[in-house]
Amino acid sequence: MPLPSFQEQFAALIAAPSVSCTQASLDQSNRAVIDLLAGWLGDLGFACEIQQVSPGKFNLLASYGSGPGGLVLAGHSDTVPFDEALWQSDPLKLSEIDGRWVGLGSCDMKGFFALVIEAVQPLLTQRFRQPLLILATCDEESSMAGARALADAGRPLGRAAVIGEPTGLRPIRLHKGIMMERIDILGRSGHSSDPGLGHSALEAMQDVMLELRGLRSQWQAEFNNAQFTVPQPTLNFGCIHGGDNPNRICGQCSLEFDLRPLPGMQPEALRAAIRQKLQPVAERHQVRIDFAPLFPSVAPFEQRADSELVRIAERLTGYTAASVAFATEAPYLQRLGCDTLVLGPGDIDCAHQPGEYLEMSRIEPTLRLLRELIGHYCLNPVGDGL
């Protein structure tokens, strides 16, 4: 039975719901997407391995050819949640509007897999001297559990990896990390008429925030990378909750914040600096302070500017490799020994938005680029040169 057409594959991926969300009521399995990809790739002769990461969540690693080296074309199979009322078309149906393919995941980034399959099909009559691996992960949009499971397993992949996140077909070799953290303060409530009856968690949190702002200033003075639009690390106070009534001393307060470190900044060292500041505040206010990540951190990412993959991508695209502010799965693939680059056809400005789209004018340039990369790493591998 012949494979569906490129457009039919693209549409089927969009139609398969795969929302990843920290809220259980919105979270969905990605199995339907993985099964589609495994079916199509299996029919093309790829060896397909499905890894269960957690109940309802799966990674796919499909390989064509064998041996060391080769190329990994990677992406995530999940999408963010969506509000259908804000879309002007059905988010789970591929629509062609003004030269764009519109649908949830068209840009970020299920559509990339259809492009990969379309790119590789005419090459399969040739001998693959080194393998091509196609990787689809789960839960990138929430916990990055799929990529972390892959990295923790420690199985080597290819010589080079390209992640098809939306970069407008410009190569990206750096991005900041992301840490999402939570601080809980447990004080003692009491009648507000006598401050001695309690220990205010809200006042303690005020001092915690002052300490965090001090650390932020310190880090921003110490670390700077002009390759980023925002060249310093950032720390954002995202939400705070505490207390229940004006006439009660606040007995509990929680703060959630995110910290985006630059390459060279280690998440555990940053957490250790924060903990060092929290203990004196706890003692001064006679409260208990708990500090923990909401999710495991994503490390900052940097691929050497003079690496083979960066030089090839710059030559093929005509753009100098640059940086982005958003985080990706790139650090996890690097841990597995891959030269890694982020390079895909979508535009980040429309990702996570109603009306997400892929410009149809990007389709042919993406197919040409993918075929060139497959040719270099799999068909005619030449070691560490151009």
Score class of each variant (00 low, 15 high):
1 M>F: 08
4 P>L: 11
5 S>R: 14
8 E>W: 15
12 A>K: 09
16 A>K: 09
18 S>C: 02
21 C>W: 05
22 T>C: 14
24 A>M: 11
26 L>E: 13
30 N>R: 01
32 A>G: 07
34 I>D: 03
36 L>E: 06
36 L>S: 10
43 D>Y: 03
50 I>T: 08
51 Q>R: 07
51 Q>Y: 05
53 V>E: 02
53 V>Y: 02
54 S>I: 02
59 N>C: 03
61 L>N: 00
63 S>D: 01
68 P>T: 15
70 G>V: 01
74 A>K: 01
78 D>I: 06
80 V>P: 04
87 W>K: 08
87 W>Y: 10
89 S>T: 15
92 L>K: 12
107 C>N: 07
110 K>H: 13
113 F>I: 01
136 A>I: 01
137 T>I: 07
139 D>W: 08
151 A>W: 00
158 G>S: 00
160 A>W: 07
161 A>I: 01
162 V>M: 10
170 R>C: 12
173 R>A: 11
177 G>L: 09
179 M>I: 03
180 M>N: 11
181 E>Q: 15
182 R>M: 08
186 L>Y: 10
190 G>T: 11
190 G>H: 15
192 S>P: 09
192 S>L: 13
193 S>Q: 13
194 D>N: 15
195 P>T: 04
195 P>C: 11
200 S>N: 02
204 A>F: 04
205 M>Q: 03
205 M>W: 08
206 Q>P: 00
208 V>P: 06
219 W>C: 02
221 A>E: 14
223 F>T: 03
236 N>G: 04
237 F>Y: 09
238 G>T: 12
238 G>H: 11
240 I>E: 11
244 D>N: 15
253 C>G: 01
255 L>T: 04
255 L>M: 05
257 F>M: 08
258 D>G: 13
264 G>F: 13
276 Q>A: 14
278 L>K: 07
281 V>D: 01
282 A>R: 11
283 E>Q: 14
287 V>T: 04
288 R>D: 11
291 F>G: 04
291 F>L: 12
295 F>H: 12
296 P>I: 12
299 A>S: 15
304 R>E: 14
304 R>Y: 09
305 A>H: 12
310 V>G: 10
310 V>F: 06
323 S>Y: 08
327 A>H: 11
330 A>Y: 04
334 Q>S: 10
335 R>Q: 09
335 R>G: 12
336 L>K: 03
337 G>R: 11
339 D>E: 15
340 T>L: 05
341 L>K: 00
350 C>D: 05
357 Y>G: 04
358 L>Q: 03
360 M>V: 13
365 P>N: 11
368 R>W: 02
369 L>H: 01
377 Y>H: 00
386 L>V: 07
